[in-house]
């Protein structure tokens, strides 16, 4: 019997990696930040995260039932969206608002466009943007972390709010406090350390590359250095680390090419600094990523790699 020769087109080598594995890695990477959130905000954080984790797959399942689509809960993408959204919410947010946010994120942000892989915008950020527009008061009520012996919630301003509104009576946290997470803010934007652990895990697992986070953070650092404002403060406050490592690197809504990813990161950083310094909001990570998401198809088109031997980048059919 002669040897079997199997002819097939590439790819010839396949890994076991699939969508659930990628999503599982993202969930693992978000665990430190979630634990930090629960540590700093206790019951408030737990409540919000649980609501989001329950309602995200539920919304996905119901919308897919109604639209008669294939059930995709087991690819875990809904869980990731729910967890990411939970980490962008303020701790004292009423649970029903969080639930609406998750439903909006899954249905309006993803299902309406055709499901995972078709959404032009990051679903979690769509949910957050809608919530900010709907309930601006609830979405911008912040409390101090409850790690101290005082267990009741004390309303306060976020570090970026203090700078933007020039609130003199509030004390700005030190850089170390910002890094470890002892400050007011959304659930996931408190502890830079926990977020960095997750980000490094994703980089180590090669689920994301350095291009988007580094160019994003780099532009923020460089522009604040050039404008002579506190570089570390700009890097550590707000949702910047969360956005740069977990939101902007979303496969579906970021460019495919390395060059395109760097452009994407640069634009995100510029938009963020513009909104922070010149815009009406204290923080602009959410909107800047959403705005630059719109440019992703264009960036992809402009950075198509040149084929070997081809004369021009585009119109190679001619």
């Amino acid at each position: 019997m002669e040897e079997k020769f199997i002819l097939s087109v590439s790819p010839h080598l396949k890994t076991k990696e699939d969508v659930p594995r990628v999503m599982l890695d993202v969930i693992i990477a978000l665990i430190p930040a979630s634990l930090a959130a629960v540590y700093f905000f206790r019951w408030y954080a737990l409540r919000t995260i649980l609501v989001c984790l329950i309602f995200a797959p539920l919304a996905e399942w119901v919308s897919e039932k109604i639209m008669k689509r294939k059930n995709t809960i087991d690819d875990l993408s809904a869980v990731v969206t729910g967890l990411l959204l939970a980490l962008t919410l303020p701790p004292t947010l009423p649970p029903w608002i969080a639930a609406i946010g998750v439903i909006v994120a899954i249905v309006l942000g993803k299902a309406f466009f055709g499901g995972l892989g078709w959404n032009p915008f990051n679903p979690a950020l769509v949910g957050r943007a809608v919530l900010v527009a709907c309930w601006p008061v609830e979405m911008t009520t912040w409390i101090k972390p409850v790690t101290s012996r005082v267990l009741q919630a004390v309303t306060t301003a976020t570090p970026l709010n203090i700078v933007k509104e020039k609130l003199v009576e509030e004390i700005l946290p030190t850089h170390l406090e910002l890094f470890l997470g002892n400050r007011a803010g959304s659930l996931g934007e408190t502890s830079v350390l926990a977020l960095l652990i997750g980000g490094i895990y994703l980089l180590y697992r090669r689920q994301i590359t350095w291009h988007i986070p580094l160019s994003y953070l780099g532009v923020v650092a460089l522009s604040s250095f050039l404008l002579k404002i506190d570089v570390l403060f700009q890097l550590f406050t707000g949702g910047l680390i969360l956005g740069a490592f977990f939101m902007a690197t979303d496969y579906v809504t970021s460019p495919l090419t390395r060059k395109g990813q760097i452009i994407f990161g640069l634009l995100c950083g510029l938009m963020t600094m513009l909104i922070r310094l010149k815009g009406g909001f204290p923080e602009g990570v959410c909107y800047s990523i959403l705005i630059v998401n719109m440019l992703t198809p264009t960036i992809d088109k402009l950075t198509v790699p040149k084929k070997f031997g081809a004369r021009s980048r585009m119109f190679t059919n001619k």
Partner: peptide, 22 residues
């Protein structure tokens, strides 16, 4: 008691009209 403000803002109009078109 706590209406979703976005619906009377322009984005709410676009969302409603898009959903109805679909």
């Amino acid at each position: 008691n706590k209406p979703a403000l976005i619906m009377i803002l322009p984005p709410g109009g676009f969302i409603t009209i898009g959903t109805l078109m679909g």
